[in-house]
Simulated assay, not measured.
Amino acid sequence: MTDPTTTPNMDFRTHLVAVDRHTELLLATARSLDPGSIGDPSLCPGWTRGHVLTHIARNADALLRLVTNAVTGSSEPMYDSPDARDADIEAGAGRPLAEQVTDLEASAARFAAASAGLTEEMSTVPLLARNNTKVKAGYLPFMRMREVVLHHIDLDAGFSFAEVDDEVLLALLQDTIRRLRHNPETPSMSIRTNEGDVWSIGDGRPIVSGTRAAVLAWLTRGDAAGVEGTLPTIPSLG
């Protein structure tokens, strides 16, 4: 039984391996899409599949900036501005699938090459991420892994949380619970997984249960199909 009230495992080397593995899964899904479906709705409100693929690519470049800051001591912003981030996603969303896949591959390769230069000494370097969020450099591989996995789901192309490695599921759940605990809008509840994890927020009521995959789908994507209990409203984590 696990009650991860402390910071979850953030071994950046472990997460870099997971990034590579789940990027390959994402690319396999992207390559399998019908080219005519690039404009189909995704699970992200207001976004098509093209928006999601473009966002994943631009996120790799944004996190690459932060990796470079950690390695060189520079201070480039993660994104030039919120408006510039949104404009880049909108501009790339309508591109043909083949161009999207090429961009996804190239941006992922750039991030992988740069993040290979992270060292244990650099892992504690403080950085400024999106929305003035402060993170340590060792957290960047996890941030990338989270984006790849969650937005792979958002493509709505057959990939599910049930296909995510169990250690990655646990890390994503731990991080999600941590962020929910820091959000004043999060309601009280107790979360229990079939794998034996227990998390409490507030007074621990009501009790919500399900597999790790099902609980993560509910907490992050509002899919309550596999969870049981009286379900409170979960605030968006962005």
Results as ranks from 00 to 15, higher is better:
Asp34Met: 00
Leu27His: 10
Leu25Trp: 04
Ser37Val: 04
Pro77Asp: 06
Leu64Lys: 09
Arg65His: 14
Ser107Phe: 04
Ala87Met: 04
Ala113Glu: 15
Val71Asp: 02
Glu105Arg: 07
Ile56Val: 14
Leu53Met: 13
Arg21Asp: 15
Arg49Glu: 10
Glu24Pro: 05
Leu26Glu: 09
Arg49Val: 01
Asp20Ala: 14
Ala109Asn: 08
Met122Gly: 09
Asp88Ser: 14
Asp40Phe: 01
Ile56Gln: 13
Thr124Met: 07
Leu53Ala: 06
Thr23Gln: 14
Glu121Trp: 01
Ala109Cys: 03
Ser74Phe: 10
Ala18Phe: 11
Ser37Met: 08
Ser75Ile: 08
Ala70Pro: 08
Trp47Pro: 05
Asp88Ile: 11
Ala70Asn: 03
Thr119Gly: 12
Trp47Asp: 02
Gly36Leu: 07
Pro35Lys: 05
Val52Phe: 06
Thr29Pro: 00
Thr54Lys: 07
Ala109Leu: 11
Leu43Phe: 09
Glu105Pro: 03
Ile38Arg: 00
Gln100Glu: 07
Ser123Leu: 09
Ala60Lys: 00
His55Trp: 06
Glu76Lys: 08
Asp103Glu: 15
Val125Pro: 01
Ala28Asp: 15
Ala98Phe: 01
Glu121Ala: 14
Ser75Lys: 12
Gly46Thr: 00
Gly117Gln: 08
Met122Thr: 09
Glu105His: 01
Glu105Cys: 05
Ala108Pro: 04
Phe111Lys: 02
Arg65Pro: 02
Asn59Thr: 12
Ser37Glu: 15
Gly94Lys: 08
Leu104Phe: 07
